[in-house]
Computed example of a mutant assay.
Amino acid sequence: MFEYAEVRNMTELELKYGCNPNQKPARIFMESGELPIKVLNGKPGYINFLDALNSWQLVKELKAATGLPSAASFKHVSPAGAAVAKELTDVEKHIYFAQDMELTPLASAYVRARGADRLCSYGDWAALSDVCDAATARFLALEVSDGVIAPGYTDEALAILKTKRKGGYNVVEIDPNYVPKPIEHKDVFGITFEQGRNNFEINDALLNNIVTVNKDLPEAARRDMLLSLITLKYTQSNSVCYVKDGMTIGVGAGQQSRIHCTRLAGSKADIWWLRQHPKVLGLQFVDGIRRPDRDNAIDIYISDEHDDVLAEGVWQNTFKVKPEVLTEAEKKAWVAQLSGVTVGSDAFFPFGDNVERARKSGVQYIAQPGGSIRDDHVIATCDKYGIVMAFTGMRLFHH
Results as ranks from 00 to 15, higher is better:
60 K>Q: 14
270 D>C: 12
226 L>G: 03
188 V>E: 12
393 G>S: 06
221 A>S: 11
361 S>W: 02
342 T>E: 05
399 H>T: 11
226 L>Y: 01
348 F>W: 11
312 E>Q: 10
112 R>G: 12
32 S>M: 10
343 V>M: 15
362 G>S: 07
21 P>G: 00
321 V>I: 14
321 V>K: 10
259 I>K: 06
226 L>C: 02
254 G>I: 00
327 T>L: 08
32 S>P: 12
350 P>E: 10
95 I>R: 11
306 H>V: 05
250 G>S: 09
387 I>M: 07
57 Q>C: 13
282 G>C: 08
268 K>V: 12
150 A>D: 09
198 N>K: 09
23 Q>R: 02
255 Q>M: 08
15 L>K: 00
236 Q>H: 13
351 F>M: 15
305 E>D: 14
109 A>Q: 04
296 N>E: 15
386 G>L: 03
135 A>E: 10
74 F>C: 06
28 I>R: 03
136 T>D: 10
3 E>Y: 01
187 D>G: 07
316 Q>M: 07
37 I>S: 08
343 V>P: 06
382 C>N: 04
90 D>Y: 01
328 E>F: 15
51 D>W: 01
290 R>C: 12
69 P>A: 02
72 A>T: 03
65 A>L: 00
116 A>W: 04
55 S>Y: 00
134 A>H: 01
6 E>I: 09
168 G>M: 09
140 L>N: 03
359 R>L: 08
53 L>N: 01
253 A>T: 04
323 P>A: 00
346 D>E: 11
122 Y>D: 15
380 A>K: 05
382 C>P: 07
358 A>C: 03
329 A>I: 04
33 G>H: 06
89 T>E: 13
28 I>M: 11
115 G>F: 02
80 A>H: 02
18 G>Q: 00
93 K>N: 15
221 A>W: 08
224 D>C: 01
58 L>V: 03
216 D>Y: 04
193 F>Y: 14
344 G>R: 02
104 T>P: 11
356 E>R: 14
141 A>V: 01
221 A>N: 02
190 G>L: 01
212 T>D: 06
90 D>W: 04
363 V>P: 04
212 T>M: 05
126 A>M: 10
14 E>Q: 08
174 I>Y: 06
390 A>M: 09
314 V>F: 12
64 A>L: 11
270 D>T: 06
96 Y>H: 11
286 V>F: 07
144 V>M: 13
297 A>S: 15
230 I>V: 12
248 T>G: 11
390 A>G: 09
117 D>T: 00
131 V>Q: 15
128 L>S: 09
75 K>T: 15
184 E>Q: 10
3 E>S: 14
143 E>G: 08
330 E>H: 06
292 P>Y: 05
283 L>Y: 07
208 N>D: 15
191 I>K: 11
357 R>H: 13
243 V>Q: 08
82 A>R: 00
317 N>M: 12
240 V>C: 12
317 N>S: 13
323 P>Y: 00
25 P>M: 02
359 R>G: 02
30 M>H: 11
305 E>N: 14
396 L>M: 10
275 R>F: 05
162 K>I: 06
303 S>C: 13
130 D>G: 06
135 A>G: 08
45 G>L: 01
132 C>R: 07
277 H>Y: 04
281 L>H: 11
337 Q>P: 08
89 T>G: 15
97 F>R: 12
145 S>I: 02
345 S>Y: 02
250 G>P: 12
311 A>V: 01
81 G>A: 07
226 L>K: 05
326 L>E: 09
241 C>D: 07
116 A>K: 03
228 S>W: 00
290 R>T: 15
